[in-house]
Design a protein around this nucleic acid. Sequence first.
DNA 1: GGCTAAACTTAGATATAATCTAATTACTTG
DNA 2: CAAGTAATTAGATTATATCTAAGTTTAGCC
Lengths: 140, 140
Amino acid sequence: MEASSIKESLQTSGLRCTAQRYAVMAFLTDHKGHPTAAEIFKAVNRVDPRSSRATTYNNLRDLVKAGLVREVAVEGRAGRFDLEGMRHHHFVCDRCGNVEDVEWYDLPKPRARSLGKRVVRECQLIFRGLCAKCAGRSSR
Amino acid sequence: MEASSIKESLQTSGLRCTAQRYAVMAFLTDHKGHPTAAEIFKAVNRVDPRSSRATTYNNLRDLVKAGLVREVAVEGRAGRFDLEGMRHHHFVCDRCGNVEDVEWYDLPKPRARSLGKRVVRECQLIFRGLCAKCAGRSSR
DNA sequence: GGCTAAACTTAGATATAATCTAATTACTTG
DNA sequence: CAAGTAATTAGATTATATCTAAGTTTAGCC
């Protein structure tokens, strides 16, 4: 995603394009490896202007709410973030906690009845198990 | 799930049926509301024999690994647990963090190629948004 | 029954993750 | 420019989960 494109998508979502917020988007654009909030925070602070922890977390939350960023929660570990955009599913490794992309394919929708009055923001398909690297190391 | 049935499924999984472990299974059997580890810990400690925090967490992990219990990770909040068994999908509320069941329906599998050498333990479909209760309260 | 190894449990300390607080700064709109 | 709203900040605080190191129980074997 280019600079102008980031700016535009922020504004379309009703979010100001602040330096700190932009930095989060830019980092996610360049790093497709599903970074944690801590990693993003650290990365953003190698740039100027810097950003506080609270701001990084606030921005990530706002961006998720706006549908620009997606969060994958991982049990007992920090959540991972990536840009919405190219659709894909996720694979979470039980052992190392890494999050990987799984090629997108369409999913059937649930019957309207079974969702009732709930308002669905998104739907994630998550595979869990051992990533190729950890599976190789067997049960050690 | 009955007492003997819990005992049996533990043994089939190669886990000893200890009082503490049994208590976790029994609690999950009786409480379908996707409790957190902290809630389970607290509940188990109203029974005898009691169980330490570490044991509760250890047992939950072992039970998940054995495929008897499922964990749903929630961003920024405690994970929620329920018994495997009756299959269902999940809905996680953005606002209150509650986890609810969504009627089961079959999902297409990914192409073998797109999973590569990964070893899949399970696959979860998770809807996110506002639960009926929180949606009612609107954007307040 | 007694022995042994492995599985299990424990209390509390520690680590990790994320949010909160209260004050400040920076936009944006009229 | 004035004023209101949005955003940011440092650091404290809370929440969640794991670790440690020692003790206990169990299953299998003789």
